[in-house]
Nucleic acid binder design. Structure first.
Lengths: 333, 333
DNA sequence: ACTGCGGCTGTAACCGGTTACAGCCGTGAA
DNA sequence: TTCACGGCTGTAACCGGTTACAGCCGCAGT
């Protein structure tokens, strides 16, 4: 900036005012400055601006992984809302490891005005210990305990969603319903599994041998499908903890000559955009993934604008059952 | 930091040395400092560190959109490589608009050590005009002209991939082959369309009425499938410019009672992870998406470490044909 | 000619770290 | 006792912007 000032024959203060329109600058002075800035390819250094302003216009995002449609959709929601509020996104992924989480959180300090942390197995105290006080943070989909300290918590209603799906399947007459569970340490996965077990128990049905441990990937869904197809008494329905595993399961079942839904109904969870385009279109539980991101940004943005600590409220977004052809009911389109 | 220094009864220099192990610090002094830092929840301000060090340990990523498996996969590749080189990622999306691109680029200045820009319709001069000189930049999948100025260019071999796919379809005996094109302004889409036309022309086949304008979304693929199924003389094969549109097309064809591949073969492009789990498993052109991201990070990282301008080389990554069941050939699993 | 005033512009402190350089202190040797 | 030396620690400049405050200049009014 000093170079631009020298080139234009003015002081740095004038250059700054010219760029931010934060003070009066003479017409021809402005032209000289703009010419100089262009010639020198001057672009203001945001780090310096952030340092001085104590505002970065950036929100941090820490997710366990970037793989799959779920995170893609979440990021899209975050991005969309961030753009609307004129924020940028700083993304870090912490492949589950506590150490990586610590590093990711610490790397955010001073670079962001607020933080979205999605991590099943991270405690509120870990987050707080590695961030400066007063930084607004929203925890996504963590344990639904009371929002601790100054953290906001945002989750989805896994129990209600999984419950609705189970009622749907039971209502269609299914009695042997299998469940392909998500990553064991994942909180959402645990809630979905619990709701499955509860619904089966309430209907007086056993779940022995009907729960398959998956990890949210298509490949694990495929393995589950292959396993179930080979059973002596295969289930008549499979409820997967997410859509990717449901797609994998369908693929495995078909490869073994089973028809979906005629021989076996399949249902998923998340309702990713592709779900309606699978063959057959997948019955799923719609999760407002991008709304989740949008809502997180709203809350952070509100806290930042007001320069007040975030209200440590817990919020749960509703889920809705989406019936398509893969369970044999509803519009077969 | 001054607070920590005061609390521990030392100077800021000692605190800094203690944290970075960049100088000798007495044993009990260190303990006092650590105790004070913990009590005050001190986390160093990265903006200040960046400003002083002129290194941010962050790479910027500008993509047109965050939607879909392609970007998800790209981000994963970038993230993985960035993590390996101990970099963080600053992500911005510029929904196509020139103005948003400008804003995104300018917001990166001083916050990143290097930049990955993926944008079909952005000229090298736009990029250069909105970034400080000497900032290493890799352009992804842009026009494959000679790498301009100081920009690196990284692309994939669309022509070879689409060509191989067309040879495969023609080899299976197909003569009426339709193409579902990607977003018109997209460079990759244009190259794939061109290769399709070239292959048809070389085989002496007409393409009248066989090209459908899509936009890379499942919905546009669905519309294309519905349209093609309703033709008086439907094609015997459909080559979609990406997998999402292929999935949409399959869904539409099945909804109208057509069998894939028996009545109509379908092929895609990108080979997203889900492709093998579609029903039927999708024949596609494998694009090393995550390698693309990894390679971009490698080149930027090399330039940053060497503190030398990036070598403005153009690099093209190969694509490979992946035959699955959706075209009636190959392993039907 | 002098004063008042308003429009531009310049000087310098500050944001929160890092680090070159200088200084302090205690110990061992002369 | 004096001096050299090495191990710690403190002072202050610097990174690149922003901005409070002061100063300059020209013009209108008296």
């Amino acid at each position: 900036m000093y170079d631009v000032a020298r080139e234009a024959g003015v002081s740095v203060a004038t250059v700054s005012r010219c760029f931010n329109r934060s003070g009066p600058v003479g017409e021809q002075t402005r032209r000289r400055i703009e010419r100089a800035a262009e010639a020198l390819r001057f672009v203001p250094n945001r780090a310096a601006q952030s340092l001085r302003a104590v505002r970065t216009h950036t929100l941090g995002v820490v997710v366990p992984d970037l793989h799959g449609a779920f995170f893609s959709e979440l990021l899209r929601g975050l991005d969309h809302a961030a753009r609307a509020h004129r924020y940028h996104l700083l993304v870090a992924s912490s492949h589950g490891s506590q150490e990586e989480i610590r590093a990711a959180l610490r790397s955010m300090s001073g670079r962001v005005d607020g933080l979205v942390v999605m991590n099943p197995d991270v405690s509120a105290s870990t987050v707080e210990a590695n961030l400066p006080p007063r930084l607004p943070v929203v925890l996504l989909g963590g344990r639904s305990g009371p929002a601790a300290g100054t953290l906001g918590v945002l989750g989805i209603d896994n129990a209600a969603g999984a419950g609705a799906m189970m009622q749907h399947l039971l209502g269609l007459g299914h009695r042997r319903i299998a469940h392909v569970a998500g990553t064991a340490s994942n909180h959402d996965a645990a809630e979905r599994l619990r709701a499955y077990r509860a619904a089966m128990a309430a209907a007086g049905l056993a779940t022995d041998g009907l729960v398959f441990d998956g990890d949210f990937t298509e490949a694990s869904g495929y393995r589950a499908g292959a396993h179930l197809a080979g059973l002596d008494a295969p289930p008549t329905a499979v409820f997967a903890a997410n859509d990717a595993m449901a797609a994998g399961a369908i693929s495995a079942l078909r490869a073994r000559g089973l028809r979906v839904p005629a021989d076996l109904a399949v249902a998923g969870f998340d309702d990713i955009p592709l779900a309606r385009y699978l063959s057959p279109p997948l019955t799923s539980v719609h999760v407002p993934i991008s709304d989740l991101g949008a809502r997180a940004v709203e809350r952070l943005s509100a806290a930042v604008e007001a320069d007040a600590p975030l209200i440590p409220r817990q919020e749960t977004l509703p889920t809705t059952l989406v019936v398509r052809a893969s369970c044999g009911a509803g519009d077969p389109s």
